[in-house]
Amino acid sequence: MNKSPENRQLETVAYSIPEACRVSSLGRTNLYNLINAGKLDARKVGGRTLIPAESLRRLIEQAPSALDAA
């Protein structure tokens, strides 16, 4: 079955800071701290700061397991 262009969902390429907070459950200050520490990529496009989706995924995937912290 072919998906028509109207039915295809767009893949998220990057998140604004508020969107990144929402999808990651991380706070704004924490996100900026991770960016400043070089642990999270950010790009300025116009006046907006965007977080590449792959960078956010990588951050979460590389974080220690909650079981490892116990």
Rank of each mutant, 00 (worst) to 15 (best):
Gly27Glu: 15
Glu19Val: 01
Arg8Cys: 13
Ser55His: 08
Asn30Cys: 11
Gly38Thr: 07
Asn33Phe: 04
Ile17Asn: 01
Ser65Trp: 08
Gly38Arg: 06
Arg48Pro: 02
Arg43His: 13
Ala42Pro: 01
Lys39Tyr: 10
Ala20Gly: 04
Asp68Glu: 14
Lys3Asp: 05
Ile17Tyr: 03
Pro5Ala: 11
Arg28Met: 13
Thr29Arg: 14
Leu31Met: 07
Arg58His: 14
Val13Asn: 03
Leu59Lys: 06
Pro18Cys: 10
Gly27Tyr: 02
Arg48Asp: 10
Ser55Phe: 06
Leu31Phe: 04
Val45Gln: 10
Arg43Thr: 14
Thr29Ile: 13
Arg58Tyr: 07
Val23Cys: 07
Gly47Trp: 03
Leu40Asn: 03
Asp41Leu: 09
Ser24Tyr: 05
Asn33Asp: 14
Ile51His: 00
Asn33Pro: 02
Gly38Cys: 05
Met1Ile: 06
Ser65Tyr: 07
Val13Asp: 02
Leu31Glu: 03
Val45Phe: 02
Lys39His: 13
Tyr15Gly: 00
Pro18Gly: 09
Leu40Tyr: 02
Leu31Asp: 00
Val45Asn: 05
Asn33Trp: 01
Ala53Arg: 10
Leu34Gly: 04
Thr29Trp: 02
Leu31Lys: 04
Ser24Asp: 08
Leu59Met: 12
Glu6Cys: 04
Asp68His: 09
Asn36Ala: 14
Leu31Arg: 03
Pro64Asp: 07
Ile35Trp: 00
Gly46Asp: 11
Ser24Trp: 04
Ile60His: 11
Asp68Met: 10
Gln9Ser: 13
Ile51Phe: 00
Pro5Thr: 09
Ala70Cys: 03
Thr49Gly: 04
Asn36Glu: 14
Thr29Lys: 14
Ser25Glu: 04
Gly27Lys: 14
Tyr32Ser: 00
Ala69Ser: 09
Arg58Val: 09
Arg28Cys: 12
Val13His: 02
Asn33Thr: 10
Tyr15Gln: 00
Ala69Thr: 13
Ile17Lys: 03
Lys39Ser: 11
Tyr32Gly: 02
Ala69Glu: 11
Tyr32Ala: 05
Ile60Asn: 09
Leu40Gln: 04
Ile60Pro: 00
Glu19Leu: 05
Asn33Val: 00
Leu34Tyr: 11
Ser65Pro: 00
Leu34Glu: 07
Asn7Arg: 13
Ser16Asn: 09
Ala37His: 08
Asn33His: 10
Ile60Glu: 06
Ser65Glu: 08
Asn7Pro: 01
Glu19Cys: 02
Ile35Ser: 05
Arg8Thr: 13
Tyr32His: 14
Thr49Val: 15
Ala70Val: 12
Tyr15Lys: 00
Lys44Tyr: 08
Ala53Met: 01
Gly46Ser: 11
Glu11Met: 08
Pro64Asn: 08
Asn7Gly: 09
Arg48Tyr: 07
Val23Lys: 08
Glu54Lys: 15
Lys39Trp: 06
Gly46Leu: 12
Pro64Val: 12
Arg48Glu: 13
Arg22Pro: 00
Ala70Phe: 08
Cys21Pro: 04
Asp68Val: 09
Glu11Asp: 10
Ala63Met: 08
Pro64Ser: 12
Thr49Ser: 14
Leu34Phe: 10
Pro5Phe: 05
Glu11Gln: 13
Arg28Leu: 08
Ala70Met: 07
Thr49Cys: 10
Gln62Ile: 01
Gln9Trp: 07
Thr49Lys: 13
Glu19Phe: 01
